[in-house]
Design a protein around this nucleic acid. Structure first.
Lengths: 389, 389
DNA sequence: CACTTACGTGGATACGTTTTCAAGCATCTC
DNA sequence: GAGATGCTTGAAAACGTATCCACGTAAGTG
């Protein structure tokens, strides 16, 4: 009763044809109508399902698509994953999932696992730098980056790995790649090296496109229009009279922080740009530290929903009232933003769409060099921002 | 330069040994020290990584573990997924993910896909009934249910599929399985059919265990102690003077609603037990409808965080103040529960642990008939409940 | 009618691995 | 010293599929 699953051979025998014919019929190849019908009937009757194992081995690829996100507990990545899953399902492709915890090492491990599984298409929210990903694409993987781009290779003096209490602040060393991202209309024939791109910082990309900075890896990406989102938020805050605006960032926020710097203007108060690692504890520590070290700040933009959550918590703990004492705008429009007290003003980015589009890109990579895509953000004004007090 | 990956054959040739030896060395089999060393060196030098494809085909199983959840946008399932991923990573197993949207049809489709991929171990938050899962386990899958159990097979008169506006209320037809779950100490030798289990409804399971109701499918499960959780919450509300307490439920809440009925006592006001489908819209509709149809209710237990979110939103829209006009306790302790205004009193269940334990169960299913496990819940009192007003 | 063309078909091969089996060889035991 | 025992080893056989190729047969063309 517990007989093993029927193979293509069984179907062939039962239908009185060769295995090749069965394979053709099921793969949509040519076959005479009566043969096709008979094979189909027998296959249905035997409840035959072609084994992905045999097929995969034969074509030397698994076929599924890999998905690497930092943390599924972060609602935004949940949305992104749902988008990927929706597209993958409609294409009938399985999705193998990995959570990197924003740790380049874990990411590298997961890449290795995907390689081993011969999953040759992966969409990732990269945690590591370009060096982490070079082996993957060199191995023939089709990869699409979502939500962020990998950081640049760390220079020889490699400042990484030291984790000063899980929180570090200061400048971004990757302004180059970020700036590059912010430009559009790059002539594709321009140099390959990380040479400074021409064009004033005041250029208006709006619909920035192109092979983008991941050009250095030749990898397409689908990103939110961080620049416009951040700039709109900062302008909104400035319009309310705020002058000392802080940015609370997380891993991979190079582009967002670059946009922030650009939006606030030349003399950036470096103490007001603070970073946390991916964890909630780190986010809270960063937010709390920021509020305590700079009680003079009047507004903060949190670069992600976990950071926004931390900011609210830290503010409450320090008896700072939102928006009376401090205004807050948060990246990501998550369902609970509206439940907050006060409801949070947010920069909405379409997480689900980002995932869906990324999946589309990675699936139809037949058309060479699929263009990267940038999706719009939107400032949704609720109640967490008020005039400077 | 873009040569294909090295195979075991390449390693064998380069090391001057047979492929069998290479396989043994890499699989931890016995080999002479010098041979082992040479093989290892050559393998490292060639950057050889065994292809999972070949191995899988040979052993006729993919080896990964499938994960089926209703919705990754729901923070609780995000936590659960993280737990599964953590355990799977430490075991070096890939995870293929599927999102069912709480739709039995999609679930069946995903099961089919896993079957096709020869993924023979799956942990699922089941959306369908036992009939949906019978084929899977009959096909030899090792499945572990998490967070819920599948509903019973729908009787001949099959009331399903009609979706009265996405919201339906009324009795649960699956009280049998739920009650069964609430009992412990079931003599394993008892009948197989769905005969009524002996033992009064007042028995105290506390650490309910056993092959459990999924005994009908012979499937282990890892669940939260819903009964204690719900009962504690209801008692807490009663202690505050509440008498008209509503339950706002979702798909698969059979056990929770049964516990609710038991906790509130014999004459259950059926209008106060309302169900939504998995979507946020449906949840909001259910909550709003509940508040409007029964303005006399003074407290509501939301059976999940999406439902809790909907309840807060609906209450706000109807100008009901929490907790002055209506008290609210929500299942799931999500990070934003604390950010809410007022902070939400919740029944916490360890989502991450549930996932981790489920993964453990499904991985070491070598030890036959792994016992099901029930993890404790905890009532976390914050500010969303007050005395009856 | 002879020749080409097109198409439907089945046998055979390859994909990369694990595992069985028997053989080779050294060591141990009586 | 002869037989038994243990360990290491490589050849070969799967696993289930897709695809190449050659072989037919039928239709189209001169």
């Amino acid at each position: 009763m517990e007989s093993r699953r029927a193979t293509i051979k069984d179907v062939a025998e039962a239908a009185g044809v060769g295995v090749a014919t069965v394979s053709r019929v099921l793969s949509g190849g040519s076959a005479s109508p009566q043969t096709r019908e008979r094979v189909l009937a027998v296959a249905a009757q035997l409840d035959y399902r072609p084994s992905a194992l045999g097929r995969n081995l034969r074509q030397r690829r698994t076929g599924g698509i890999g998905l690497l996100v930092p943390d599924l507990t972060d609602t935004f990545y949940g949305q992104l994953a749902e988008g990927v899953l929706a597209c993958a399902r409609s294409a009938g492709e399985p999705v193998v999932l990995g959570s990197t915890g924003d740790d380049p090492e874990q990411e590298a491990e997961l890449i290795g696992m995907l390689l081993e599984q011969s999953v040759d298409r992966v969409i990732a929210v990269p945690a590591g730098d370009t060096d982490t990903w070079r082996p993957a694409i060199k191995a023939g993987m089709t990869v699409v980056f979502a939500d962020r781009l990998p950081t640049m290779d760390t220079p020889p003096h490699a400042p990484g790995d030291t984790r000063p209490g899980g929180v570090w602040s200061g400048g971004v060393e990757n302004a180059a790649i970020a700036d590059l991202m912010l430009l559009d209309g790059l002539s594709p024939a321009s140099g390959i090296g990380p040479q400074d791109a021409a064009g004033g910082p005041t250029s208006r990309p709006q619909e920035a496109s192109g092979a983008s900075a991941s050009r250095m890896l030749d990898v397409p990406s689908v990103l939110a229009d961080d620049r416009t989102g951040i700039r709109t938020a900062v302008r909104y805050l400035r319009g309310l009279g705020h002058r000392r605006i802080a940015y609370l960032g997380g891993p991979g926020h190079d582009r967002r922080v670059a946009a922030f710097r650009e939006a606030v203007g030349a003399p950036v108060d470096e103490e007001l740009v603070v970073f946390a690692t991916g964890s909630r504890d780190s986010a809270y520590a960063a937010a709390s530290g920021l509020f305590q070290s700079r009680p003079d700040l009047t507004a903060v933009v949190a670069g992600g929903n976990v950071l926004g959550e931390a900011a609210v918590l830290a503010a409450r703990e320090l008896d700072l009232r939102v928006p009376r004492d401090v205004s807050l705008v948060m990246y990501d429009d998550v369902p609970w933003a509206e439940l907050c007290s006060p409801p949070l003003t947010v920069i909405a980015q379409p997480g689900r769409d980002i995932g869906y589009r990324a999946a589309e890109l990675v699936l139809r990579a037949g058309g060479r060099r699929p263009r990267s895509v940038v999706l719009p953000t939107e400032l949704i004004v609720r109640g967490s921002c008020g005039p400077r007090h």
